[in-house]
Design a protein around this nucleic acid. Sequence first.
DNA 1: ACTTAAGTTTGCAACGTGGCATGCCACGTT
DNA 2: AACGTGGCATGCCACGTTGCAAACTTAAGT
Lengths: 323, 323
Amino acid sequence: MNPKLRDVADHAGVSVRTVSNVVNGFRYVAPATRERVQASIDALGYRPNMAARTLRRGRTGLVALVVPEIDSPYFAELAARTVRIAESRGLTVLIDQTDGDAEREKELLHGRRSQLVDGVLFSPWAVAPAELAARTDTVPLVLLGEHDGTAGVDHVAIDNVAAAREATGHLLATGRRRVAALGIQPRSLNATARQRLAGYREALAELPRLEVPVQRLHRADGHRAMLALLDRAEPPDAVFCFTDELALGALRAAADRGVSVPGDLALVGFDDIEDGRFSVPALTTVSPDKDRIAELALDCLAAEPGPPRSIVAPHRLVVRGTS
Amino acid sequence: MNPKLRDVADHAGVSVRTVSNVVNGFRYVAPATRERVQASIDALGYRPNMAARTLRRGRTGLVALVVPEIDSPYFAELAARTVRIAESRGLTVLIDQTDGDAEREKELLHGRRSQLVDGVLFSPWAVAPAELAARTDTVPLVLLGEHDGTAGVDHVAIDNVAAAREATGHLLATGRRRVAALGIQPRSLNATARQRLAGYREALAELPRLEVPVQRLHRADGHRAMLALLDRAEPPDAVFCFTDELALGALRAAADRGVSVPGDLALVGFDDIEDGRFSVPALTTVSPDKDRIAELALDCLAAEPGPPRSIVAPHRLVVRGTS
DNA sequence: ACTTAAGTTTGCAACGTGGCATGCCACGTT
DNA sequence: AACGTGGCATGCCACGTTGCAAACTTAAGT
């Protein structure tokens, strides 16, 4: 059995309460006492029991990060940053994967983790706004990424409409005229995809649109969709992809068909994942400030409850070799 | 305040103990009582308090996954699988990042999480074998990846020597003769890198070796090292990279220098990460069975304590476009 | 010398749950 | 009628910690 406060107290010849005071850095402990107690702690290898501490304090020090897939590079990079920043604030991150499944998202929204974590960072995919609004669980929640704004919930996101407009505008500025948008989510309530589509449309103005749906946002989807696009009678001369993964799949499709990038086809991605910096050619992309997103989201969790906040994180367009 | 057993008990007109029996599916509860209690649970939205339950039961249902970097694709993919499998077993995964820092690894080995988790899945990077052996913490530990075997600890890994031998052998079988190994860790105690080097040497037998050290195993390191290799008077005609990330960086370097892959240069990676399937050309690689690794590791945690187990997970060589 | 304040240590109680032992009841068996 | 059995419900207690308030000690101010 692990040593407990009682054991340390006996060993040091003080009360349990005093040991607790030492452990918690309470101000009024005589230096000599503190030293003696600390020696006993070290000697016995005492470690506070988290369960008892949590039960008593009412806080766990845990934060749940809910994402569709932790192995999707964007989420992996976001998770890495979240874990680091959380640690610097004394928090520990626990990962939940939804696989984009609405049921699972619902479960997590409605308190699957409620007694286990102090807060939830939620990256929604398929969940309906009504579910968000109907939430009864009281654990602080911050949405990552865009949502439709109808549910009164804190959220942190970049300006997806502006970013998509810039990305598309950049393609137009390089002289492209048949610019496709790749990444539409046909049956999904996914708000992020809708916002990026809106930005694309704004930038195109009167130019003809070409909006390509995909099932998911992986490389394989981008690959498949791009092959189909290149097989058309009049293929696009540029594609704005809603994620870097789609863009990398598309890039691969161009190579398969012998289409030169950026000569015959320009590509812009979204997310600025590490792979895009080393693809051939390197991927032009919208880079969301992931560190800032993680920071702002954790700030938001820590903040006093109040009216729902809507926080905009910075982003920038990074022009590389595919455009 | 969240409702507790007491509140449900009052609402249903039974004792606290009976509610507890219902929650835990105890056998001897009259169907009518069970139904009534369940109704109260639903009505009040009762959720068991994890802290209290943990304190009483002595188990948390949490498992720590300790990796150098969660945003390194191999670890992200491993984490995704671990989280899924853990969930199917009623466990929740909590992520710790060490950034390959020996101090941090040491901390985690010596009980930083001891009172918080039921077990630790540890992917060591820089920690000394002596630290493993000197561990006093009693939380079950399973090492992921190779170690030197001197510390009596459970571990799950593929046969890195054999895998490296196969990879190098494959390059030789395609007629390459100047085969470099990329990924040596100069000052590190990293056992995995040493095993892969051993396999490389075995395969080469009497052929001349070319062993290239790198600081870390990222794309940028592979890129830099490959550029240097290509600048040599007599560059290699094949490179066995210790990770796919290194290989992808090398691939990019080849493109930068106008070297044809696989014509002038063959590449083999290690890990079978998603990006490698969509690079141009697609990456030949050693594919460890990540699902199996995660399963075996969790099995190992759940198993009765006993003599240290050394479990070998399957792998296979996947030949694609770079060789 | 007397009061006040600041520093230091302590005991008690409670956080919400589940293990244990026990009690109660109805029913069937000896 | 006494007994045993199995189904069901309950009260008490402990898990290890910290908040609270009180007690005691020493130093400083009047």
